[in-house]
Simulated assay, not measured.
Amino acid sequence: MTTEGHIAALERRHQELDRQIQTEMQSSRYDDLTVAALKRKKLEVKDEIYKFTTTTQ
Protein backbone atom coordinates (compact mmCIF):
# COMPACT_ATOMS: atom_id res chain seq x y z
CA MET A 1 0.00 0.00 0.00
CA THR A 2 1.32 3.42 -0.87
CA THR A 3 1.73 6.08 1.75
CA GLU A 4 -1.13 8.06 0.22
CA GLY A 5 -3.33 4.97 0.29
CA HIS A 6 -2.45 4.31 3.90
CA ILE A 7 -3.23 7.91 4.84
CA ALA A 8 -6.57 7.69 3.01
CA ALA A 9 -7.41 4.48 4.88
CA LEU A 10 -6.53 6.13 8.18
CA GLU A 11 -8.70 9.14 7.34
CA ARG A 12 -11.63 6.83 6.57
CA ARG A 13 -11.06 5.04 9.89
CA HIS A 14 -10.97 8.41 11.66
CA GLN A 15 -14.30 9.41 10.09
CA GLU A 16 -15.85 6.06 10.99
CA LEU A 17 -14.77 6.43 14.61
CA ASP A 18 -16.27 9.93 14.64
CA ARG A 19 -19.58 8.52 13.38
CA GLN A 20 -19.48 5.79 16.04
CA ILE A 21 -18.86 8.39 18.75
CA GLN A 22 -21.77 10.53 17.55
CA THR A 23 -24.07 7.49 17.40
CA GLU A 24 -23.08 6.40 20.89
CA MET A 25 -23.55 9.89 22.33
CA GLN A 26 -27.05 10.11 20.83
CA SER A 27 -28.03 6.74 22.24
CA SER A 28 -30.37 6.56 25.18
CA ARG A 29 -27.97 4.02 26.69
CA TYR A 30 -24.97 6.38 26.51
CA ASP A 31 -21.85 4.73 27.93
CA ASP A 32 -19.02 7.03 29.01
CA LEU A 33 -16.45 4.24 28.90
CA THR A 34 -17.34 3.27 25.34
CA VAL A 35 -17.19 6.89 24.19
CA ALA A 36 -13.86 7.39 25.94
CA ALA A 37 -12.42 4.28 24.28
CA LEU A 38 -13.63 5.40 20.85
CA LYS A 39 -12.19 8.87 21.36
CA ARG A 40 -8.86 7.34 22.41
CA LYS A 41 -8.78 5.21 19.25
CA LYS A 42 -9.72 8.24 17.15
CA LEU A 43 -6.84 10.22 18.67
CA GLU A 44 -4.42 7.36 17.98
CA VAL A 45 -5.50 7.32 14.34
CA LYS A 46 -5.14 11.10 14.13
CA ASP A 47 -1.62 10.85 15.59
CA GLU A 48 -0.73 8.21 13.01
CA ILE A 49 -2.09 10.39 10.19
CA TYR A 50 0.00 13.28 11.49
CA LYS A 51 3.08 11.09 11.66
CA PHE A 52 2.68 9.99 8.04
CA THR A 53 1.90 13.46 6.70
CA THR A 54 4.86 15.11 8.44
CA THR A 55 7.39 12.46 7.36
CA THR A 56 6.36 12.62 3.69
CA GLN A 57 6.69 16.39 3.36
Rank of each mutant, 00 (worst) to 15 (best):
M1P: 06
M1A: 13
M1S: 13
T2N: 15
T2P: 07
T3V: 14
E4H: 13
E4D: 15
E4A: 13
E4N: 15
G5Y: 12
I7V: 11
A8C: 05
A8F: 02
L10I: 05
L10N: 01
R12V: 10
R12I: 10
R13Y: 07
Q15M: 06
E16D: 13
L17V: 03
L17P: 02
D18K: 06
D18C: 04
D18H: 10
R19N: 15
I21Q: 03
T23H: 11
E24D: 11
M25F: 04
S27F: 09
S28P: 08
S28D: 15
D32E: 11
D32R: 03
L33D: 08
L33N: 10
T34H: 03
T34E: 04
T34N: 01
T34C: 02
V35A: 00
A36F: 05
A37N: 09
K41G: 00
K41H: 09
K41I: 00
K41L: 05
K41T: 00
K41R: 10
L43T: 09
L43M: 07
E44Q: 06
V45I: 14
V45K: 00
V45P: 00
K46F: 10
K46E: 11
K46N: 07
D47N: 09
E48V: 04
E48A: 03
Y50P: 02
K51E: 12
F52V: 06
T54R: 12
T55M: 10
T56F: 06
